[in-house]
Design a protein around this nucleic acid. Structure first.
Length: 459
DNA sequence: TTTTGAGTTGTTCGA
DNA sequence: GTCGAACAACTCAAA
């Protein structure tokens, strides 16, 4: 009997840790530990999603004759106790690159026979390296090396049945309502993958940029909790590229594969450079003169900046726990460049709000936007929220969906409503400063201010 | 060791 | 409206 210690791999299909745990004698004890170090207070949407996922995993396990054991507390104490109670020999778990997880797992491994099995990324962080063995710091060469590695296309089968679990005291799974837009569970993940593969993937290159369309896969949260296997996703991307009807469609599949490689890349960065969670990767950009501006921060958090695209983005996240990728860049850039507020403040806020919040990808994204990261945008690349809106939400439908008070604003002003003459404001019933805020900062002024603040650090 | 080309996602300005 | 160049300098990766 082995313990399958479930953390971020809430699935039965193609699960390397689960399969490894079954190999000794086919006997399994599936365990989830509610770790107080990881549970935020007050509980956020991501936790609600996790709890919903645990409930579904428990049901899925019950169909196979097993069930989920839930404990609350410190894994270092709970696992040894469970091993004695159950007579389990070893613990199997999927490895996790975050510094907290690595420290925790090292401590657990000192006490018992812990087997960490790779599965969170397609390739382990150590697998994609330069010829001298050093890790990559730039995405493009990393992705070339990634694509050159040998491919293993065999997925692991879900077990057909499991041993029954004798009575164990088990904690109830906390009951919280999870966002309706993202039902938890493996079956839902499979449904979404299938529907993405039947069409949207072929237009992905273009439509993924559009905030007003559902052109993205919307699979991030399922990958985040391992409800979908990254290997299945990668294989699907490759297969779709092979059967793509034309060159344009193939380009879409390749673009999606690239996004999956970014996920591996940021996991590898966090593995090799755990300090990215504490400091800017670029040492010269660690002491930018950030503003301490609580009112501006609050306006950003609440979606009241006066820039419709930014506000739509922040409100979409507040309501659903998810934000369109393009919107993430615009909103993040606005906090860092327009408000000149430390990117780490935004990083923390996103981690609180996002159901797919993951330390490696979230940090990678924020450091990229801030220009402080391994493979960062040039500091003078400052998103213009008006232009971004016109380009990637051309009719303003994304804005109108999440900022309903602007619904009657004509298309021509939807991304810059303060430019409306007063007569038009009156006509559409949106008085700037009354029904919708005036911009909290003027674009050109903010752009210049950011350039100045960064410039002093570069030379 | 040295050299060379390149680096996710942009914006602005002037022709 | 469209197009190309400038925007800085630096570090990385590979030869």
């Amino acid at each position: 009997m082995n313990i399958w210690w479930i953390r971020r791999d809430l699935r039965l299909e193609d699960n390397p840790a689960l399969s490894a745990a079954l190999q000794t004698d086919g006997q399994l004890l599936p365990v989830f530990i509610l770790d107080d170090h990881l549970l935020n207070k007050p509980a956020d949407k991501r936790q609600a999603f996790l709890f919903a996922g645990m409930r579904i995993l428990d049901e899925d396990l019950k169909h196979l004759g097993s069930s989920l054991i839930v404990r609350r507390g410190d894994p270092e104490q709970i696992l040894p106790r469970l091993m004695i109670e159950s007579g389990a020999v070893s613990v199997f778990a999927e490895s996790d690159v975050s510094p907290y997880a690595r420290k925790r797992d090292a401590a657990v491994a000192r006490q018992l026979d812990l087997h960490l099995v790779h599965g969170a990324g397609y390739y382990p962080p150590m697998a994609v390296r330069r010829s001298e063995g050093r890790p990559y710091k730039v995405f493009t060469p990393y992705s070339r090396a990634w694509k050159a590695l040998p491919v293993s296309e065999m997925l692991l089968k879900k077990p057909s049945s499991l041993n029954p679990i004798p009575y164990y005291p088990t904690e109830p799974i906390p009951d919280m309502s999870s966002p309706l837009e993202f039902p938890a569970g493996e079956a839902e993940a499979q449904r979404r993958l299938s529907s993405f593969l039947t069409g949207p993937i072929y237009d992905y290159r273009e439509t993924r940029e559009r905030m007003d369309l559902d052109g993205t896969s919307q699979l991030s949260v399922y990958l985040r909790f391992g409800m979908l296997s990254i290997r299945q996703a990668v294989i699907s991307a490759r297969l779709s590229a092979e059967i793509a009807p034309d060159e344009g469609s193939k380009v879409g599949c390749d673009a999606w594969l690239n996004e999956l490689i970014w996920r591996d890349f940021y996991q590898a960065i966090l593995y090799h450079y755990p300090d990215v969670l504490k400091y800017a990767f670029k040492p010269n950009l660690r002491d930018i003169p950030w503003r301490d501006a609580p009112h501006d921060l609050q306006a950003w958090q609440c979606g009241q900046t006066g820039y419709p695209v930014v506000d739509a983005a922040m409100r979409q996240m507040a309501v659903t726990g998810w934000m369109h990728n393009r919107a993430r860049m615009i909103a993040a850039s606005f906090l860092v460049k327009h408000l000149l507020i430390n990117w780490q403040t935004g990083e923390r806020w996103f981690m609180q709000q996002l159901i797919d919040g993951d330390p490696s990808s979230n940090n990678g994204g924020w450091q990229w936007v801030a220009g402080t990261g391994t493979d960062a945008a040039p500091f003078f690349r400052i998103f213009n929220p008006i232009l971004q809106g016109m380009k990637f939400d051309p009719l303003g439908n994304y804005v109108r969906r999440w900022v309903p008070e602007l619904h009657a604003v004509p298309n021509r002003y939807i991304h810059a409503p303060w430019q409306m003459p007063v007569a038009e404001q009156r006509e559409c019933g949106v008085m700037i400063g009354q029904h919708y805020p005036a911009p909290i900062v003027e674009h050109t002024f903010a752009r210049t201010r950011a350039l100045e603040a960064y410039k002093t650090r570069v030379s």
